[in-house]
Computed example of a mutant assay.
Amino acid sequence: MNAAQRRDALQKALYESDQPVSASSLAAQFGVSRQIIVGDVALLRAEGLPIIATPRGYLVQRRSTQNCSTIACRHSRDALLDELYTIVDTGCSVMDVTVEHPVYGQMTGNLAIASRLEADAFWHCLLENSAAPLCELTGDVHLHTIRYPSEMALTHCLEALQAKGYLLKTDPAV
């Protein structure tokens, strides 16, 4: 298989998967190094394919914004995993995290977390890499895009986050 054929097969594999696929597993599947896959993904992105990198691997970004909402949150690093659990326990998914950096502007990290297992994997990835969550760059203030299966699930999610003090409150006097 030549490089163009491999990229076509890689594109097909990513489009057919509804879960993130790691570069290492793709490398094993195609009999090449992880770095070759990283380069192939970069070329596919340059061609306009909506491939995103999550902590668990590559995923084709589905453009639908149906049943998505953006929420503003604030909490310490110690509450990060509980925040994710709170969201997924209501049947919702955390699609991303966005912060407004004073130098770089808006920065978004793709998460695609829909279960406690995926939340745990994200948390362990942070720990294993001694990485700071993006919210630490902005005094713990951050946004999440939440995908929800129903209005009722979103309402339960927001109520649960509010009860734990994770939703950023707006001051009506300001």
Rank of each mutant, 00 (worst) to 15 (best):
M95C: 11
S22F: 07
I87K: 05
V60E: 05
S130T: 04
P133I: 00
L134P: 07
T65S: 10
S64D: 13
V88P: 05
I87N: 04
L49W: 09
C68Q: 10
L143A: 11
D171Y: 08
Q35L: 13
L44N: 02
Q5P: 06
M1I: 13
Y104H: 14
L158Q: 15
Y58S: 01
I52Q: 00
V21Y: 10
R34I: 10
L14H: 00
Q29F: 02
I52K: 09
L26Q: 03
V97Q: 15
N129M: 09
L44A: 08
F122P: 01
D40I: 01
C73M: 12
E136K: 05
T155S: 15
D8A: 15
E118N: 10
A28M: 13
H144M: 05
G139E: 06
S115D: 06
L59N: 06
A42R: 14
L84E: 02
N110S: 14
D40E: 05
S22A: 05
T86G: 03
Q106A: 13
A28K: 14
S64P: 09
T54R: 12
L158F: 06
N129P: 06
A131D: 07
A23E: 00
G39V: 01
M1N: 11
P102L: 12
L168V: 04
D96H: 02
P20Y: 01
V88S: 10
T70Y: 03
T170A: 14
D18F: 13
V32E: 04
P50L: 03
C125A: 14
L127F: 02
L43K: 15
S33K: 12
D82I: 08
I71S: 00
G165C: 05
S17R: 04
E128R: 13
L81E: 06
P20D: 08
S22K: 03
N67T: 15
L134I: 09
Q19L: 02
A153Y: 03
A53E: 13
L167R: 05
S69T: 07
G48C: 00
V99G: 12
P172M: 09
R63V: 01
T98F: 04
V21D: 09
A72C: 07
D78H: 12
A3N: 11
S17C: 08
Y15S: 15
D82G: 06
R34Y: 05
I113K: 02
H101T: 04
D40Y: 01
R147C: 03
A119H: 00
Y85A: 09
N129I: 04
A9G: 04
L81G: 08
S115Q: 08
V21F: 09
L81I: 02
E83Q: 13
P172D: 02
L158H: 14
V94Y: 04
Y58Q: 00
P133R: 11
I51D: 00
R63P: 06
Q162F: 01
F122M: 01
Y104G: 03
V99D: 11
A9C: 07
Y104N: 08
P20H: 06
H75I: 00
L49D: 15
R77F: 10
I146P: 11
G105V: 03
Q162M: 11
L168D: 01
Y15Q: 15
A46G: 10
L44G: 10
A46T: 10
T138R: 00
M95V: 14
A42V: 04
A27S: 02
T108D: 04
Q11F: 10
G57F: 07
L117C: 12
H101G: 04
Q29S: 07
A112H: 15
A23W: 02
E151G: 07
A153R: 09
L59W: 10
V94I: 09
G109L: 08
Y15M: 13
